[in-house]
């Protein structure tokens, strides 16, 4: 680790301690639980700063993911304290176990003595070469298409949105020909319609816009 990196780690480490202390003080003062989330969020941000220099570049996204999991576990535990008695006993056990495991997971990503120990004990190796290369841009594109597909289904229903979704994905996302995209889109429509509506007699979701239009026509 270079001099600059160790300074960043040190500052981050101090930040973690400060924000954790602030959380405990605020908890003691009996402040509202939502406000308590602020020092926790800042503490996690400081943790990222502290650990980033200790992690290989290829593993940094794994570190962010592991810290994300820790944040989720803390949030879960925070929410669990809203409940009383029996309803929170088992979730508390699970929540605390989750935090311990998340911390170990974070340690396992770092190039530190603790990290090496955890890796040895749990055999928790994350070989960067085993992570298949994935373009973030491509991932966002696929997620975006999926979300648009769901919105399309919500607005226009399965029978209208499904063939359009398949057609557009193949044409724009997969670079397929118009003819092939059209055939597969129509094939999907026929399959969904025959199997679900005709054979299994389910009434598929019609969509908000389609239902509104149909209501207008009927009136």
């Amino acid at each position: 680790m270079s001099g600059g990196s160790s300074t960043r780690s040190l500052a981050g480490g101090i930040g973690v301690v400060v924000f954790l202390a602030a959380y405990l003080v605020m908890l003691g003062m009996g402040l509202h639980r939502t406000i308590l989330l602020a020092p926790l969020a800042l503490g996690l941000a400081a943790l990222v700063c502290a650990l980033k220099p200790m992690v290989e570049v290829e593993k940094q996204s794994a570190l962010y993911f592991a810290i994300g999991i820790l944040a989720f576990m803390i949030f879960f535990l925070h929410e669990t304290y809203e409940f009383k008695g029996k309803e929170r006993n088992f979730p508390l056990i699970i929540g605390y176990a989750g935090i311990v495991l998340s911390l170990l997971d974070i340690a396992s990503v770092t190039e530190t003595v603790a990290g090496r120990f955890v890796t040895r004990f749990f055999g928790a190796t994350l070989d960067p070469s085993e992570i298949k290369p994935r373009e973030v841009r491509r991932e966002l594109l696929v997620f975006g298409v999926m979300v648009l597909g769901v919105i399309g289904i919500w607005l226009f229903g399965f029978l209208i949105a499904s063939p359009i979704f398949v057609f557009l994905w193949m044409l724009l996302g997969g670079g397929k020909s118009v003819k092939l995209s059209l055939y597969v889109g129509l094939g999907t429509f026929v399959f969904v319609y025959l199997l679900f509506e005709q054979i299994l007699s389910y009434e598929l979701y019609r969509g908000e816009v389609t239902t509104w239009i149909m209501d207008m026509i009927w009136e």
Binding site: V166, M170, G174, V192, Y202, L204
Partner: peptide
């Protein structure tokens, strides 16, 4: 079968299946 044919078609069938559980 190309990923860009398989992925959208299976996704659609899967989503219809998820909806069909309780409508």
């Amino acid at each position: 079968v190309d990923a860009h044919i398989l992925a959208p078609t299976v996704t659609v069938v899967a989503l219809v299946g998820a909806y069909a559980l309780q409508g």
